[in-house]
Each structure stands twice: as structure tokens, then as C-alpha cells.
Design a protein around this nucleic acid. Sequence first.
DNA 1: CCTGTAATTGCAAACGTTTGCAACGGTCTC
DNA 2: GAGACCGTTGCAAACGTTTGCAATTACAGG
Lengths: 361, 361
Amino acid sequence: MVGLKDVALRADVSVSTVSRVLTGSPLVNAETRDRVQQAIDALGYHPNRVARRLRGDAAAASLIGLLVPDIQNPFFAEVARGVERVAQAEGYMVFVGNSDEDEAVERRYLRLMRAERVDGIILPASSDNATTVVEMARGGLPIVCVDRRLPRATLDTVVADNVEGAYDAVRHLLAVGHRRIAFIGGRRQLSTTQERQQGYRRALAEQGIVVDETLVRAGDSRQAGGRDLTRELLELPHPPTALLVGNNLMTLGALETIHARGLRIPDDVAVVGYDDMPWAAAFNPPLTAVRQPGQELGRRAAELLLARIEDPSRSTTLVTLRPELVVRLSCGVGREAKIRARARRDEHAIRQAAADDSVAA
Amino acid sequence: MVGLKDVALRADVSVSTVSRVLTGSPLVNAETRDRVQQAIDALGYHPNRVARRLRGDAAAASLIGLLVPDIQNPFFAEVARGVERVAQAEGYMVFVGNSDEDEAVERRYLRLMRAERVDGIILPASSDNATTVVEMARGGLPIVCVDRRLPRATLDTVVADNVEGAYDAVRHLLAVGHRRIAFIGGRRQLSTTQERQQGYRRALAEQGIVVDETLVRAGDSRQAGGRDLTRELLELPHPPTALLVGNNLMTLGALETIHARGLRIPDDVAVVGYDDMPWAAAFNPPLTAVRQPGQELGRRAAELLLARIEDPSRSTTLVTLRPELVVRLSCGVGREAKIRARARRDEHAIRQAAADDSVAA
DNA sequence: CCTGTAATTGCAAACGTTTGCAACGGTCTC
DNA sequence: GAGACCGTTGCAAACGTTTGCAATTACAGG
């Protein structure tokens, strides 16, 4: 590899001068600069960022780490894009690691990023990686949580309001006339799952509906989980008339099961998805979904991180972004009468069954 | 940051000894080793990979670069996952960059990766970045092309057989009875677009069907492109009865337009997508699509890259993977009679129109 | 007691940069 | 003519490692 030394030799100057040319220092004669530049071009020299980073001159690293739990989940791709946008604009580069929701891999990546002396790290935190993350942050490494938060830790955090998102979705289903509404959540360790379930419960409670616990499920945040849990729910003696599915991959699984069983949306079962992904509009019927501002989450997280890198002593911030319910046809809007009628029938049947049970007992 | 020196000081040994403990050298007394280890733990020391990389001891970098054109395209997420799997297993870490199909960003990332002294780079090559890539490869940096290939360059390459994939898809549409089949391609610069179009033409030619050039379009590889081109096609005086859409995002756009116009799949228009993505089965009707082995493309690319890093003088290899047509319902299987009848009507109408034109002229 | 050997350790160079400081030559000022 | 100053340049240290080589020690054999 051709280095400063080679250039210096060829241009007949010292390495210092070459370095100064490269960094655009004004302390160099125009003529010399030209000569050096020629040598650089002739030799095809390219500066070595590793050496530069080692030297550790403030902000010379310009590298931030982004740890995503599942690169195949397009929601995180959106977040990543937001992060990258800001980073690019500010002259930072992004080092992306994918943990596949695997705790060990996660820890490995965190260590690696620190070892690579990144200026800071952005990640969706979970109880899995909590200790490593907190320890690193305490060690002075700037860290920002995005999408998922850590309960007690004092870290910069950017999240969407998941309670609100789920609350709005369920409110809407109730307004359309649904009464038996199921919730399919992702991994239980995640703050997002917990909060969305909370919003779900709150909306039902407000209407004086007692939650049927058989309708509340949690899975693995993957497509297969959505498929299986939906099957379980639909095979119930009194299946739900509506599903709130807790993330975009699980929603795919849910739809798969529904189509496979030949059920119609929304007449047989209504669906609201979490995450309004590009394909939501391509479904038939188009999917009603809670839109999370993925890119903005990423953007804000990156901004927070850069701010903290700039001023490590600044006080930690929590940014909460509002999700938005995008109403399309999968939830049954426009069919309120039909849905209400069915809800009444269902309710009656269930009461009947309960009565039979108690008689039998 | 605590470094070797601090540990050495505390353990009352030289830095060399500490280093030897870290690298697991046998040249160190057991007792000393313990003492050093204690100091390491006590101080919370973590090695600095930057310094290690600078030193440039063979294979100590263990870092490969992956440049994806669009991180929001799940196909590339799949490829990335494949790359990562192999890398992880071999102790390599992956530095992911996203160019958003922007030539300038692409070049910037390539330079950056080289500047970071990665051991090698994997990327879908296009004529956009061809010169930079070839130049770098010539400079001795191991580079592997994946998914997209460069025409004349001699680089290790892993691709799916795109001619074959499109050919199979069109053959199938023909077998079902379609005659007016449109092709919506991605960016013209990409080898994938060119090859898929080639497969499309070959299949038609074999049946003695002359290609109606108004049915062959190329766009921007994005969802919006699919949406717009599909609209154009459907507004034609004699619209196609079937669409082969050249990548997964454009397929979403196509479906969006079709649903928006209230058309039924496959009766009004049949669709075959390129890339069988997780949501293909969640569509209604489920989407017939050409499955590309994304993960395997990534895996093979990574293997090729690591092999070349190991032995830079090894001769370049081209790996071609077979795609597979996954037949679901969107193409009209099971409705052959209906489709054939319509094809005959269409043909007649077109001939009629042509006759009218020549009379008018 | 001297010498050879093996085990353990330390010294110092090297990787490719950046930058404070000093040196050099020239010009200006008094 | 001497001193001060300016513009330009080079020297050398530093960043945190790894590693070849040399130094130290202890011990065995003669």
C-alpha cells in the first residue's frame, strides 16, 4: 500500500508537508502543493483512515455503529435509512450489524463496535443486551436507544408511542363494531410488545369490555409466529372477529393463515397491522395499519447521538413520536351494521355457552 | 481509554507481556498470566482493533465491506443475511453501506471501505460504479460481484440465472394461455434488467410471437416506478392480459395500481413477480413469482471473497444459481379456457383495429 | 566455578497518520 | 547592520498494538 512516505519521497518533501496538503492546511506553498498533488495522483495514493482513527484526533473517526435486531424486518431497514441519511449529511459513516435477535451476537457486535472505536452506537435496546449497553454507556460511549427502550436506564431514547398506537387501533375496531378483538404481540422482552398490549387493554377497559385472556397472545416477532398464533386464535370455539397484530412480519403470517383457511377479510375476520409497510396498500383488501415513522425514528436517533458525541455531558433526552392509524379496508369500515349484528350474535352465543356450562356443572 | 500500557503498569509487567497474554501466546508464565488477567478485568480493558488493524498483521482486520444499492429492498436484506452468516462463522465482521442507487454515494462508500482497510468488498456491480470497482480490484483489493455482474470485467461473480428466470415465467404464462404479456423492468443499467428482458423475449420468440414493443417498459426499480408503468400499460388501447414485473418493489407498485383500478387478478390481468418475498403468500390471490436464492447468493459471494482473501492469485470464478418459478394463483392457472378465449378475442380486436387504421390511411 | 540451555520477560521498531515546535531563509524596520 | 517577523518546511512524538531480538534468570552439566 502506498503511504504518505512514498508520496513524500516522490514529491521530495517531508511527510508532514504531504499530510498538510491532504488536510488542506494553509501552511503550505502553492507550488509545493501542486507538486505534492501530482505525486499523490501519480501514485494513486489514498489516505488510511485506520491510522487516522488511531491517532484519535477529535471527530476524525466519524463512524457510528447501528445494531439492528433483524435486518430482514423492513421496519428496521427504514430506521437504518433514517440514521444513514443524517450520518451522511454530517460526514459520518455507519457501521451496521445484524444480530438476528440473538443475544450473544448482539453482545459480540457491541464489543466489536467499541473495539473499532466508533464514536457512538444506536440500537433498539432490550432486556437481553441491557447490562452490556448500560455498562458501555457508563464507560463513556455515547449510546442512543431507538424504537425499543430500556426501563430504568438513563439513556437518550427515541421511540414511537406504542401505547397510543395500539390504543387508537383498538378504538377504531371498537367504533366499527367489533367486540371480540385479539392481540398478537411480539417477543415479551421488548418494550414495544408490552406497551402495545397496554394500549390494547386500555382501549377495551374504557369501553367496559373485560379482556378475554385467551385472545391475548405473544410470539417471536417473526412471520412464523404470526401464522401459528393466528391459527390458534381462529380455531378457538369463539374466535375473535378482529385481530390486532403486533408487528409487520407477524402480520404477514396472520394473513397467510387467514387466506389459507379461505376466510374473507374483513367479513370473517378483520385485521389491523402494526407497521404500515409499503406492501400494505398492495394487499387485497388494502391493510389498515398503524404507521410508525421509521425513518424519522432513525433520523432523530442519529441527531441525538451526534449531539451527545459533540457534548458528552448533555442531559439525556427522551423523544416520543406519534404513530398514526392509516385506515384502509381490512378493518371493516363501511360495514358497521353487519359487524355489529355479528357481534350481538356472538355475544349471545357465548353467554349461552357459559350458561350451558354452569348448568352442566 | 485504558490501554495496554495501563494494564502493564498495574500488573507490573511490560506491554509486550500483556499483549502476549491477550493473543494467547504460550511464551508467558502461568502466574504472570493470572496477574495480567486480573489487571485486565479490574481495569475493564478492551483491545483496540484500530491499532491492531493498523499494525496490519495478516488477517487481523477480519472485516469485509458489503455495499447494497437499496437497503429497503428486502431482496438485498436477504443477500446481506447470507453474507453475514458466512462472515460470522469465519470470524469476519461485515461493514454494510447503503447507496440508495446513488452513484456518488456508491463511490464514496467504496473509497471509505478501502480507506478502512477492509479485507475485501462484496457488491452488486453496475455500470455506474464499474470504473471505480475495476480500478480497485486491479489495485489488489479482493472484490466479489453479487446479483449484478459487470460485462467484461474479470471479477469473482455470483448471480442468479436471470435469463432463465424470466424465460420460465413467460413460458408459464404462455402455457396458461396468455398472449399479450408485458414486461416491466428495473433500471436499464443493471445486468439483471437486461437479462430478464432477454429471457422474456426468448420465450416469446420461441412461440413465434412477435414482441409488441409498447408492452416492454423499464423504470427505476422502485415501487413508484411499478405503479406508474403499470398504469401506462393498463391504459393502452389493447392492454396486456399478463404482467411480468422485474423486481419485488415494482411488483408492489403494480399490485397497487391494479387494486386501485378495481381490476381482478388473474381474470382481468395476471401477474408474475420477480423475487418471491415473504409476503407473496400473504397476497390475495397469492402471487406467482420467480424465487431467487437471495441468502445463497450472499453466502456464495462471501465464500468466494474469503477464498480470494486467502489466496489472492486464485483464478476468478463465476457462480450461476438457478431461480425457481413458484406457481401460485395470480397467473391464472386453472382458468386456461377462459384466458385462451379472451386471448382469441383480443387478437381479433387488434387485427380489426389495424385493418381500420390502414383503411383510414 | 564456568558454560550452555531453556524459560520468561523487556526493548524497541513498525504500522500511517497528525501536529506542536523548531529551524530556515528571506524581508522589513529601525 | 542587527533584530524581529513571516512564510514555509522538517523533525519527532504520539496514538495502541504486535513481534523479532536481546536480555535476564535459573538451573544443569562438566
